[in-house]
Structure formats: C-alpha cells, structure tokens
C-alpha cells in the first residue's frame, strides 16, 4: 500500500516536472514564432520605403554592429582621462554618467524623505501641501532650472533623472512606511524598543522594504526613459544619438540606439530582480 502511494507520488512528481518543462518549451516556441513574425512584418513593411523613413531589421542590425565596433574615445568627465572604447560604449558611458548619479542621489533622497514623512506626522502635515503641488510636475519640466543652474551637460541631465527617481522612490517608501501596522510597532515596543531611530531602523524599514524595493525597481526603468528625454535637449549619450542620427536621416542608427536602451534596461532590471528576490526571501 505504502509502496504504491510512493510510486504514485513519484511518478506524479515526474509528470509535474515534465508538464512544467513542456509548458516552458511551448512558451519559448510561441515567443520565437511571434518574434519571427514581427521581424518578417517589419522587414516587409520597411523594404519598399527608404531607410530614412523606416529602416529594415537588417539595416538596424548592421548599424548596431558598426556602432558597437567603431572605435571612439571616451573622455571621463571631471577626471579628463581618455579611454579608447567604441562609439556605442562611449554613448552608453555618457548616459550612465548622468543615469547613475541621478538615480542614486535622487532615489536615496526620495527614500529618505519618504521614510521621514511616512513616520513623522509633523513633517507629513507640514510638507504634504508643497509635496502635492510639486509631485504632478513631470521631471522634464524642470529642464529650465537644469539648464540655468547646471547647463546642458551631465549634471543637468543627472538633475532631471534625479527628480524622476526622487518622486518614484519617495512615494513608494512613504506608502510602505504608512502601511506598517500599528500592531507591529506595538510588538517591538513590548520587546523594549523605546526610541524612534531604533523603531525605524529595525522595524519600520524592514517591514516597508517590499514597497521600497518596488520603488527602486520602478525608478531603475523609469530613469532610462528620463535619460533619453533629458538628452534630447543636448546632453551627450544614447538618447542624444537617437535624435542626432534621426536628424541626419540615419534612422537605422537611431533604432539601433533605441535597442541599446532596451537591452540596458532588461539587463539592469534582471539584475535588480535577482537582488530583490534575495533581499525579500521572507516575503509571503
């Protein structure tokens, strides 16, 4: 009897694994077919029209390879060191030079403000009216200040990216902290936590960490959108190449750089997703 059940459950397990594997194969196959159709439709649609209206996938691929391999020199901002890279990597490095500082500084400030306002009713009451008015303003609307204060350069673009990252992270951290149940804090108080800093550090932030992580992940993606938009005004980088190449009617190069954004986004999102699932292994 017991032998029977064990064989049953074992074969059941094998069947499950097979089912999952075949399900995955099926999804991959469907995805491959869908992508192939997309490329064919694109190719067919683009063939009769000139490249400056719609490049074919092949032309884009060629442009991508050319940009990826053509040597170019990257001058490290602030340090004035020259590094030999390729055109695409130079543009990507330029973009990263405002993406990373903007994301980190804006994101960190957003998380800090979000926790502070979520925790303190005094700060919340005092700052919320201003916050409500400023929040709907799109990051790009701040371009005027960015140009006047900082110029059309890395710092100006980083500023715009920072504003975008600030709001996303602010709101998620704020909501996360607000959602920490009173009972969780009461348990901690009953176990001897009697000051705000310890409560925030050991209870509120860990409890709100899923929301905070969601904010970070969203801003990692959104900041790329803002990078492109900020560079349309002239700061160097991938976004600038998209518009610059288009103005030179090299739409194949434009599209190649559009894919660069997509690839970089997928990589950074994928990495963060792994970090997130590791940090939040406890999540229900």
């Amino acid at each position: 009897m017991s032998i029977d059940t064990s064989t049953d459950s074992e074969s059941g397990l094998v069947a499950d694994e097979e089912l999952i594997a075949s399900g995955r194969r099926q999804r991959l196959l469907r995805g491959a077919v869908g992508s192939a159709i997309f490329l064919v439709v694109w190719q067919v649609a683009a063939m009769p029209v000139p490249t400056y209206l719609l490049p074919t996938p092949l032309e884009v691929a060629q442009a991508f390879v050319v940009e990826l391999t053509a040597p170019a020199v990257f001058t490290v901002p602030l340090l004035d060191i020259e590094i030999g890279l390729t055109r695409m990597l130079v543009n990507l490095s330029d973009s990263l030079y405002h993406y990373i500082p903007g994301l980190f500084v804006g994101g960190a400030a957003g998380i800090a403000f979000g926790i502070a306002l979520g925790w303190s009713e005094l700060l919340d009451d005092a700052i919320t009216p201003v916050q409500r008015v400023l929040r709907p303003i799109p990051p790009l609307a701040w371009i005027a200040f960015a140009i006047v204060w900082l110029g059309v350069n890395h710092r100006g673009a980083a500023f715009i990216v920072g504003i975008g990252a600030f709001w996303i992270n602010f709101y998620n951290a704020y909501a996360g902290v607000k959602a920490v149940p009173q009972s969780t804090k009461e348990v901690a108080a009953s176990l001897g936590v009697d000051d705000d800093l310890t409560m925030i550090r050991k209870v509120v932030v860990p409890k709100a960490s899923p929301e905070i992580m969601t904010g970070i992940r969203t801003s990692i993606g959104q900041s790329w959108m803002i990078v492109v938009a900020a560079e349309l005004f002239g700061a160097p980088g991938v976004g600038f190449q998209i518009i610059n190449a288009a103005q030179n009617l090299a739409l194949d190069v434009s599209v190649a750089y559009m894919f660069v954004i997509s690839i970089v986004f997928l990589i950074s999102d994928g990495i963060f997703q792994r970090v997130e699932s590791r940090v939040l292994v406890w999540r229900e």
Binding site: E186, V187, A189, S190, L191, G192, V203, W282, E284
Partner: peptide, 26 residues
C-alpha cells in the same frame, strides 16, 4: 509598554522578515 510584561497576540505579531531565531533574539 515594557519588557517586564511579555506579550503574546492573537495574530502572532511575528516579524516576517526575521527567521524564527532572529524573532526570538529581537
């Protein structure tokens, strides 16, 4: 509230981000 009274709540009130051991060491 204070540690002279150990409290046990209906909804457990465990810290979900901590392991069993780390809940007890809190």
């Amino acid at each position: 509230p204070g540690t002279d009274r150990g409290m046990v709540f209906q909804e457990y009130g465990l810290f979900p981000w901590r392991t069993v051991l780390k809940n007890v060491t809190f």
